[in-house]
């Protein structure tokens, strides 16, 4: 009897653990990653700095993947998450607060560069003050799922 209860409890725990992050992590938009304008002037330069308040927040963020590193089997293990496809060629690259440097626990199989994904994990703000590197977002991805239009 007790073993049955224990089994049921562990099953329930397992279910909770597998479904919880998907429901819990709030969805973040790229607009929220730009600090609010201090001036009301529409021509004011928007900041390229990250929003410090986002540091440590577990979120889901949709975006396109620019692979940086792949493992021996061709699976992607590090990438940049950007808000629009073709961030590498046609237009100036996104400002530092519009890309996230993502590292993965387990390399994953990227289907296509054109396929957007939901990336879930804890955002971190990496602060730099040197002239060559800017502060930016990093994330250790916990879950990756295809973005359905």
């Amino acid at each position: 009897m007790t073993s049955a209860i224990r089994l049921a409890a562990s099953l329930a725990l397992l279910l909770a653990a597998s479904s919880a992050p998907g429901q819990d992590a709030p969805k973040l938009t790229w607009e929220e990653m730009v600090p609010a304008k201090t001036s009301s002037d529409p021509l004011a330069v928007t900041s390229s700095a990250p929003v410090l308040a986002l540091d440590g927040r577990t979120v889901q963020l949709p975006g396109f993947i620019v692979p940086l590193e792949s493992d021996e089997g061709g699976l992607i293990s590090e990438f940049l998450l950007v808000p629009y496809f073709g961030a590498c060629i046609h237009v100036p690259p996104p400002p530092p607060n519009q890309l996230v440097y993502v590292t993965l626990e387990e390399a994953f199989n990227l289907v296509s560069l054109q396929q957007p994904y939901w990336i879930e994990g804890t955002l971190q703000v990496e602060e730099y003050s040197s002239e060559v590197a800017d502060s930016h977002y990093t994330m250790r991805a916990e879950r990756i799922s295809k973005y359905n239009y």
Partner: peptide, 15 residues
């Protein structure tokens, strides 16, 4: 690069 985040910007500059 010192920071991989800069890669897109440098790529753009070189291209």
């Amino acid at each position: 690069l010192e920071s991989r985040v800069q890669v897109l910007r440098l790529q753009r500059t070189i291209n």
